[in-house]
Design a protein around this nucleic acid. Sequence first.
DNA 1: GATGAATGAGGGTTCATTCAT
DNA 2: TATGAATGAACCCTCATTCAT
Lengths: 207, 207, 207, 207
Amino acid sequence: MQILKDEVKRSICTAALAEFKQHGFLKASMRQIAEAAGMTPGNIYRYFKSKEDLFGELLQPVYEELTMAMGTIKQEIDGSLCVEVKDHLSFLRQIDATLIRLFRESSTELNILLNLSEGSEYRAVKGDLVTLVNQIMLDVYGTMSEVPGMLSPREQASARMVASTIMESICLILRENEDGDMIKMLVDELLFMYSVGIGEKMRLRHT
Amino acid sequence: MQILKDEVKRSICTAALAEFKQHGFLKASMRQIAEAAGMTPGNIYRYFKSKEDLFGELLQPVYEELTMAMGTIKQEIDGSLCVEVKDHLSFLRQIDATLIRLFRESSTELNILLNLSEGSEYRAVKGDLVTLVNQIMLDVYGTMSEVPGMLSPREQASARMVASTIMESICLILRENEDGDMIKMLVDELLFMYSVGIGEKMRLRHT
Amino acid sequence: MQILKDEVKRSICTAALAEFKQHGFLKASMRQIAEAAGMTPGNIYRYFKSKEDLFGELLQPVYEELTMAMGTIKQEIDGSLCVEVKDHLSFLRQIDATLIRLFRESSTELNILLNLSEGSEYRAVKGDLVTLVNQIMLDVYGTMSEVPGMLSPREQASARMVASTIMESICLILRENEDGDMIKMLVDELLFMYSVGIGEKMRLRHT
Amino acid sequence: MQILKDEVKRSICTAALAEFKQHGFLKASMRQIAEAAGMTPGNIYRYFKSKEDLFGELLQPVYEELTMAMGTIKQEIDGSLCVEVKDHLSFLRQIDATLIRLFRESSTELNILLNLSEGSEYRAVKGDLVTLVNQIMLDVYGTMSEVPGMLSPREQASARMVASTIMESICLILRENEDGDMIKMLVDELLFMYSVGIGEKMRLRHT
DNA sequence: GATGAATGAGGGTTCATTCAT
DNA sequence: TATGAATGAACCCTCATTCAT
């Protein structure tokens, strides 16, 4: 018994991470994980109560950091009055930076958390991020609207769309790329497109 | 109570559509569909040969229309020389228009086809659309590049990202909205943002 | 309602015969039969109580004729004392003739009865025929044995083998040939081989 | 009560062998096998990938030996010119000896392989054997024919019949007897009858 | 007399999970 | 601590049979 408990646990996590990344939560197989970890399925249950539990333990740290960062940003948003466009962009960039930092630290976990958690308790994380970005967007639109603070349903839907597509796009970039620098570059470019586009759009509307 | 065959078939389709929309092809359960349609599972097989067949019968029309439209657009792209930026946008708008028209006719089906068809024979549809858009993007980038026709790996990755995120975003809009006019508006806005953004970006790079 | 009941019944029988011939009792499908008969499965059950019943009604006549002929032959065997070899052969030829006559009248039914009735109540028919032929063989062997009437286990097993293989071979010929004359020829040839062979064998043993 | 893996596997094989012997491949039920082996169906799949796999693992050794022996015999046949009748008989006896040896080692398996493999990948084995014997028979008939090498359709059908009935008869003997010595005796007797019979038949035809 | 929709029990198979060892 | 055999519920699917119409 020279294998310490922690070492075993780590090997399970490593195997599970790979399996979840490849097949997502729902289609991941406990047997595969056990095999890859060099043990039998039953033993996993000495370390984790269930598939959900194992999944949770892997993603919990990333999830918490993400939640915390989102909480901070949310507070800043709620606390700031008379925000300007570039401030909004700065919020976006904060989110962006958070995601990229998390990605650099835990690329696989973040990828799984955002893109492969269907069927688990984390399935809503992406939606939460969207909601946050949406809040920013509503402010942006609110500032630029003819009647500040009063958004038409169309404008609300538009803001929601922008929030969703930005988040979805960032998730996609995380999903389809492995290299951290490449991801940073692509996300930057994405935000650049959105921002300049949004700026142009707004300018055109008011002239 | 003798129910007419068509009525039963329709009730199966309704139930199946709902089940597929909620769980996707892979996780949809024939038992659930049967229950929702008010019958036993075996009876479904009087109307449809298999789960795949049921899935196919629901999506086939939308799939064919989409494929046909994509084929036409592809031919136009391949056939046109010395394309200009606005032409590229017109291609995008054609794709956009196709999707929106299909969505007006069969919103749920298109949604399932693009977002929930994993595990079925239609699993590649979204990827095909991305590939098509990517082809357009490569032309756009190629035209604007300093050395026309020669794209750096970064530029290629960027084009690929734009293609993917545009398609993903359109899918998302289709997924999260029910009203056809709203969808049209949001997709227009999305493309507007992307195009003006891309234009700005390119202009800035060359000055 | 211009289709008389009998006509419908006959069309069911025709379809059933074909299906049973092709797939045997066990794998025959009531749906297929109904379809081939131009009706729905349920209707068959107005004419026949079950698959077994339908099967039985098709084979009953042939079965009865066969049973009757076998009974007659059995009586002759039991009634004749001090039978000679050629008489035994005549019994074999009677069986042979019976089968061939039945085949000429009802080739498909006999084929099904003997070769494709597994799973039905007729599954034992071939065995019954074997038992009859075996009885003849036991007499043949008994007559030729050194101690008439007393057969060693080996001789009993041998007789049993000959009975089985003859019947099995005849069934095989029925199974693999369609033409009545060809069948007669082949069965004759088979019996000729067996009889001459048996005769030789016996002669050699006693010299 | 932890049972050793091999013991369980063996109990599955035992149960499966009995089930396949009783119902054949197609109608054998995995649930029945599981019950007979004292477990639930799912557990069988820890030991065998599928019904086909289980079937194959039971029959593979016998199948391979049979195939190898048939290959050898076929080569000898193809390689020998101007064969005589007694040589043909020697080929038959080789086949005979092979089957009997295999039967001594694996009676049930051989029985299943030859008689109960419909629906599996082994379904053609008996037919292959018949084809091989037929090849021998065609040579026999060819040698004895008035115009050597030219067989009338009747003669061809006759040869085919002899080949089929011999193989069918040997299978039957294997099927209905358990004792190896008894089987050997019966098959010898069968071939003896056939050969002497064939010889007589030919002699009579030419005088 | 005929329909055909519907059932229910069974088919092979998968897999997260449990537990005696 | 670790095993891995075993379970049980679920999966998709088939088919003889029934019965309201």
